[in-house]
Design a protein around this nucleic acid. Sequence first.
RNA 1: GCGCCCAUAGCUCAAUUGGAUAGAGCGUUUGACUACGAAUCAAAAGGCUAGAGGUUCAACUCCUCUUGGGCGCGCCA
Length: 552
Amino acid sequence: MIKQKITTVLNGIIAEYLESKGITESVNFTVEVPPKNIDADFATNAAMLIAKKVKTNPRVAAQEIIDIISKKLQNLIEKAEIAGSGFINLHVKNNVLYRELKAILKEKNKYGSISANNKEKILVEFVSANPTGPLHIGHGRGAAIGDSISRILKHLGYSVSKEYYLNDVGNQMLVLANSVEIRYKQLKGEKIEFPADHYQGEYIVNIAKRLITECKSFEEIDFRKEAVKDILETIKEDLKDFAVEFDNWFSEMRIVSVKDKEGKSEVDKACQYLLKKGDAYEKDDALWLASTKFGDDKDRVLKRSDGRYTYLASDVAYHKNKFERGFQKLVNLLGADHHGYVARLQACVKMLGFSKENLNIILYQLVSLVRDGQPVAMSTRRGEFITLKSIVDEVGKDACRFFFLLRASDSQLEFNLDLAKKQSSENPVFYVQYVNARCFSIFKESKNRTDLITDNEKVNFDLLNSKEERSLMKKLAAFCDTLALSEKTMSPHHFTVYLIELADTYHKFYEKCRVLADDAALACARLKLIEGVMIIIQTGLGLLGISSPDKM
RNA sequence: GCGCCCAUAGCUCAAUUGGAUAGAGCGUUUGACUACGAAUCAAAAGGCUAGAGGUUCAACUCCUCUUGGGCGCGCCA
């Protein structure tokens, strides 16, 4: 929170400075952590931006601002100086760091939460894989990102609902039902060839086997229903093992099949609404969405000439439904192979009377697997996809999630199984978790000392003044910056990067500073510091859905 | 053909969204356990950020073009 505080107070000072110069516009300056070769805690580019407006030398403006800072922010800033082409470098007082550490100790896993009560309701929709087979590794990436984004937004105080859109209508359902039926008949001894365009996986055979052991008569069996039931169960289980739980499972069937008193479904009503608004029209016996009006490159069919709705029609109704449930902000995760769909969806949102900002679509790129240094071949068509479950079973939930969350979602991800499986230093998950284990171990050891106090009020934080201790305290406070950045970019990968950096800072501190020092007062202060480290590591890993074991 | 995404160290990727001398991990080389966990730390080597222009006090970041890769372009979902 330190950076935010400094930004706030600087805002006041800059405004005052501009006023004194007779400038009414505001300046959009930033406060940031300088590169590590620079000896300063924070830096701002304010003077350079002002100089441009006032047409003066940045260093002159910087000096004038520094004069105000050193007069007015004596309790916050130890030293302010000009650097480079006009940066103002700031050294904060140690007290600022101690106060922040105390805030962490007090707020514990709530640290960084913003308790504004008027936060938006956000709906995060992710995975939403068709219930035609087990989740594969690509779904896993979407699941990890969607789940972590949800946790981050929740931590920030938003009311977040995680939803899985169950695409249980349409052609693929017929194919699924038929696939099971054919396997069933084959098991009964009928000689039927299995079509190449049907679902090839072994799981289809297993569903058929179950149906046979249940001994129902052929006429009684609803193959579609039975298949979806089994597959959905598997999907839910796989997600649970991956620490992903949804608040709501929304069935497309509900949108298409459930009718009101007048015999109309939600899709009927949505299409009518669009037709009335002039955003849909009839042509060639079909109903079209005029999506080109809002940036799509062609209009799309909503209702086919044979009277059946398309997937898009359901989706319009579904998103209408989302807004009607009171969600102001929708977040959709989509595999990058569906990027062609984005323009259509954005057009829908505009037709429903909302703006681009109300729908945030996160595209995530594909995952490729590497084993023994070789790429693993995958083909959905031949049923050769790698399931999420097999990866979770092989490398563990924590490592799997960490690797999925390690990269920005719009860069392709290479998942190195050899590395993820290593229970050693090369594996970044363990590097971070090790911090928690080390801290825990120190606390255990500290129980043998009788001269230590734990009361926050009595501990002398002033003793935390070495370079390593200051770095660590600053890094802890940067937790809030990471939260803000993750929200702004809608990307949890900043947290994996942050946690690795925090772990790095901690391990360096550990080498230089013995926590259980002979001097009791110092030991107490350092114990408070590593208590803060544990809180941040546990909370941070928690936001990624990753555990923090005490022992490894 | 049209559209979206990507190109950064030998490999996999970051870079606080326009800031200072572009950073991590893996791999390579070297050193450190007789005090809290060596799953760690210290150090070395490795870069014309694909290429060419442009905007800016400042460009890996924004704009244009070129090259090379991934993906999409159905009255499928």
